[in-house]
Computed example of a mutant assay.
Amino acid sequence: MGMHVGQSIASERKVVGLSQRQLATRAAYSLSMVKAVEQGREVASPGFIAAVSRVLGVDPDRLTGAPYLDILEEEGPLDGLAELRAVLAEGVYVQAIDPPPVAELANELAAVEASLRNDRTRRALAALPALLRKAHGAALAAEDDAARERAYQLLCAAYIAAEGACCRLGYSSLTALVLDRLDAAAAHTTDSAYAVRSLVKRSRLLMEHGSTDVAMSLVDRGIGLVPGDTEGERVLRGYAHLRGAIVAARGRRLDVARDHIAEARSLARPMTRESDLYTTDFGPGNVEIHACAVELEAGDPGKAARDGAALILPGDMAAPRAGHHWQDNARAWLMAGKHDRALAALNKARTAAPQQTRLHSAVRETMYGIAAAQRRQSESLLGFAHWLGATL
């Protein structure tokens, strides 16, 4: 079997000289959980990985093995990655290039956002560096306040897209730099939506590093920035409540997480579709997906599995959002002891968002968990592992 996260944890634990009991105590998890994860009998949840990586003093990606370069290299070099790194390294000194007319720049941004929505992340990444340089150029060339405002809104949206691309491809180490640039650009707009997006996206990064208290404070700040009742404010507030639910669940504060779900559900109730305002994907379907995720993280995995399997996802839901739901549903079924249903859910994730599914660390962990639960590896599991580029 390929190397799972538990084996990486055991290796790193021994390097720093901690016993399993010491690691469990410092990470605030049970000794039995640490043993089960290290032995591959239990899937390492994102919250567990965050807590353990913090104790061990390593980046979470070191434990998960992301990015999966062998998979990425199958389709050739990642166009745009080196140039995006250069843009981020330049920081406030970014080399802008002459922009096209603002309508053309907006169309380029829309194409990038559509690529991300349709699980074409490599295509989005290839276009992002030039888009960012052009948007910086538009901000510098603006002749009045209205033009400057529009340019900075486009720049913010481009950095939001860059954060999404980095996360999906496994380059989460770049997201802090992306979010710093997003913060700087958002300060130049009068639209609070971009500050909300920046705060909530940073909360995700903090959550991955186990800083759930700070992450929750950013979510609360974001909610406070959109107190009104316009469609945009309601969508942004709902989006922030969904992130608050996951942060609270990750911090094992189930009551708080459920309160956030209730607030989000109330905001989504009048909606007839999933909103694409500010690329939030907020709507009734996404609320129910997050309700299942909360149960998976901090409540009843069996309920998460059953409720998640029964969901009929809206046809207008973004492919990666649907794919992520089925990834979570697979983990929930595995935790509920139904490995056949877990594999079926992984295949649904593969159908919904194949590129994202191949590159998501939780998918591999769930697959290894299924393999550990099966007395004899089934042909369907071996086929999935082959497609994933992993060995059992």
Rank of each mutant, 00 (worst) to 15 (best):
Y278F: 12
R150C: 11
P46S: 11
A157G: 14
E38D: 06
S275P: 11
V363R: 04
S198Q: 10
V55S: 01
Q377Y: 12
L236K: 09
A309W: 14
L63S: 07
R204K: 14
D98P: 15
R150F: 07
G40T: 01
G76A: 00
R237I: 08
R204V: 14
G137C: 07
R117D: 13
A319T: 13
L155N: 03
A176C: 11
G17T: 01
P284C: 12
N329G: 03
A185E: 03
S30C: 02
A305T: 11
L23W: 06
E163G: 14
P67S: 15
V196W: 07
T280P: 12
L72Q: 06
P301H: 01
N286K: 15
S198D: 06
E108L: 07
E12M: 08
I97L: 11
G315V: 04
L267C: 00
V5Y: 06
I246E: 14
R181H: 07
Y239I: 00
F282Q: 01
A50D: 02
M3D: 13
V87I: 03
L88Y: 08
R123C: 13
R243G: 04
L236C: 05
L78S: 10
L105V: 01
T175D: 04
H360R: 15
G283V: 06
A248R: 00
A51E: 04
S192W: 11
G323Y: 09
I312F: 10
A249S: 14
P99H: 14
I49C: 06
D213Y: 08
M3P: 07
V226N: 05
A353R: 03
G251F: 03
E231D: 12
M367F: 04
S380L: 10
R234N: 05
G91E: 03
T230R: 05
G222P: 10
T357S: 11
G17E: 01
G76H: 06
T357F: 06
A147C: 02
T190M: 13
G76N: 05
D229N: 15
L179T: 00
A332T: 11
G170V: 12
D119I: 10
A82G: 06
L382M: 12
A142I: 09
A161Q: 04
L56N: 10
E295G: 04
R243M: 13
G323R: 04
